[in-house]
């Protein structure tokens, strides 16, 4: 690696005249630097995606070992599938819920921890600790705690509240899955917000206070715009994570009760891997890909509109 870079640097220094201009040199170094990543994306992201699109035009029964071209049949089935609207609603609910709860809690924790208090390092460590716990272990444990006779309800009982049967009724099941995911990962966003908050110049607050701005106004008018780049970063990471939630659903609710927590990834996993409809599973993957693409473009656009400090 080091050798390659030095060699590249040497060629770059030696050839500075004629055709070999600084611009061309920059271009070449740029391409070399991104080459492994781009090649990797082509091989391990775009080639599989192309294959998925190809599969989606086929009826593929793994057990019978049949693979036949069916054209747009799977896509017609997608439009007619009564589960798809429910699944998309659950997905939207989950992603929106997760992003809102995660970001607001992360911001709240960050604001609390940025107060001058002794022992914030201890709290910071505690809030961050679930991030490093294995996801599978974490969900298995929460599966226990959220049972009707589990730890969560025991804690609630101790303060005189009768807890619901968390994972067995629609609304609380969705809320539980969101909460488990938030507690697992909010520490990451909290830390990013903490750093961003430290980066906001104190003079801005002082000036605003002199102008008679209240705490809320200062937060809305100064803090939020100043940390908007971090809000973008965290929302990208969180949205991406929310579309990939899988182990949590598989361990906690298996998509139930009813289909209330069957999000798109889980549904496509069911169709492809459990029901052996690989062709239809691939079609659902294509749908997911379109959603993802739209979100990526949307976030990229928003960045220009909304983020205060983009270099």
């Amino acid at each position: 690696m080091a050798l390659g870079l030095r060699a590249a640097a040497r060629t770059a220094r030696e050839g500075r005249t004629g055709w070999w201009t600084a611009t061309r040199r920059d271009h070449l170094v740029g391409y070399l630097f991104v080459a492994p990543q781009v090649a990797g994306s082509l091989l391990f992201v775009f080639l599989p995606l192309a294959l998925v699109l190809w599969y989606s035009l086929h009826e593929w029964n793994v057990l019978a070992d049949t693979f036949g071209f069916v054209g747009a049949d799977n896509y017609r089935h997608l439009l007619a599938d009564p589960n798809v609207p429910k699944v998309l609603t659950a997905t939207a609910l989950f992603s929106a819920g997760l992003v809102v709860v995660n970001l607001s809690l992360a911001l709240l924790l960050a604001v609390l921890l940025s107060q001058r208090l002794r022992g914030t390092v201890v709290f910071r460590t505690l809030f961050f600790s679930p991030v490093v716990v294995s996801l599978v272990a974490w969900t298995i444990v929460w599966g226990f705690l959220l049972q009707r006779d589990g730890g969560v309800n025991a804690l609630l009982q101790a303060v005189g509240v009768e807890g619901p049967n968390w994972l067995r009724t629609g609304p609380t099941a969705m809320a539980s899955v969101i909460a488990v995911q938030v507690v697992k990962n909010v520490g990451l966003n909290m830390v990013l917000f903490l750093a961003a908050l430290q980066g906001v110049p104190k003079e801005l607050y002082e000036a605003a206070t002199l102008d008679g701005a209240g705490a809320w106004t200062r937060f809305a008018r100064i803090t939020l715009p100043m940390i908007s780049p971090t809000v973008l970063l965290t929302s990208i990471i969180t949205v991406a994570g929310s579309l990939q939630v899988f182990a949590q659903i598989a361990v906690l609710t298996q998509g139930g009760p009813g289909t209330s927590t069957t999000v798109l990834v889980y549904y496509l996993y069911q169709q492809a891997f459990q029901f052996h409809h690989f062709g239809y599973g691939a079609t659902l993957s294509a749908l997911l890909f379109v959603i993802v693409l739209a979100l990526t473009v949307l976030q990229w656009r928003l960045r220009r509109r909304w983020v205060f400090l983009e270099s």
Binding site: P257, G258, F275
Partner: peptide, 13 residues
């Protein structure tokens, strides 16, 4: 598997 899933979802109520 698909049947089992449909029955389970229906029986949840």
């Amino acid at each position: 598997a698909e049947l089992a899933q449909a029955v389970r979802a229906g029986l949840d109520q």
